[in-house]
Simulated assay, not measured.
Amino acid sequence: MKYASIALAAAAVFSTATHAATPMWSDEYTTQACETWNKDATLTTGLGDKWIKNDGGRGFKTIRIYRTECGEATQTEMKIVPKDGKAICEYGGAPKAAKMEYAFDYTMHATTEKWTEMGAGEYGPMKAMMFGRLKFVGPKVEAMTVMGPFETFLKLPGKIAGDKACPAK
């Protein structure tokens, strides 16, 4: 019986090691963030009106995200499209958009520590932007009009397990 317990404990440790979390804001992580976005009514419905329609007639908005200490080369991308009156994440992963249009699109980055704090709900977008904890390029006035959904977006790192190692690129 003692050996069976040791074998089960070893199997549990091995299983945990092989299923380690993917690095925060890696391509795989951003795919999970896209799936999580689509399950959240604050994001899909809250951004499904005016926000998603400000797209320059392209039919989508692009959000690029990365962790400051990992560098711009590790950016990932979410493509948000209007569908049935909602803002739906159609794609999450490696950047595909040829060009960012900052009248409509967003790039955000913060340190791993700050993403973790925002994900835990320690503070929202106003404090994050005012104190420089979240670096942000894009239509700031538009972002100010959707603070509730924006805060929900910043909480995604608290809903998805992410390793602190920088994503490989």
Rank of each mutant, 00 (worst) to 15 (best):
F150A: 09
D40Q: 15
I88G: 08
S5Q: 07
P95M: 08
G148S: 15
E77I: 06
A161W: 07
M130C: 11
M24R: 15
A7L: 14
M144N: 08
Y106E: 03
A12Q: 10
T36L: 05
A41Y: 01
G148V: 15
Y66H: 10
L154G: 00
Y3L: 05
W37H: 02
R67W: 06
P149R: 00
T68W: 08
M100K: 04
K155G: 06
M129C: 14
I80F: 02
G59N: 05
T16A: 15
Y91M: 04
Y102S: 04
R67G: 07
P157D: 00
K135F: 01
K159N: 04
K99E: 11
T31E: 15
L43R: 00
Y123I: 08
G158N: 01
G71Q: 13
W37F: 15
E69A: 02
E69M: 06
A120K: 07
K155Q: 04
Y123N: 03
T18H: 04
M126R: 02
I52M: 08
D49F: 06
G57F: 09
E151L: 09
D49A: 08
L47M: 06
K127C: 04
A128Q: 00
L154R: 00
A87M: 03
T31C: 03
S5H: 13
T116P: 09
G57H: 10
I6D: 14
T145V: 12
Y123H: 06
P139H: 10
G46R: 07
G162N: 02
D27I: 05
Y106W: 11
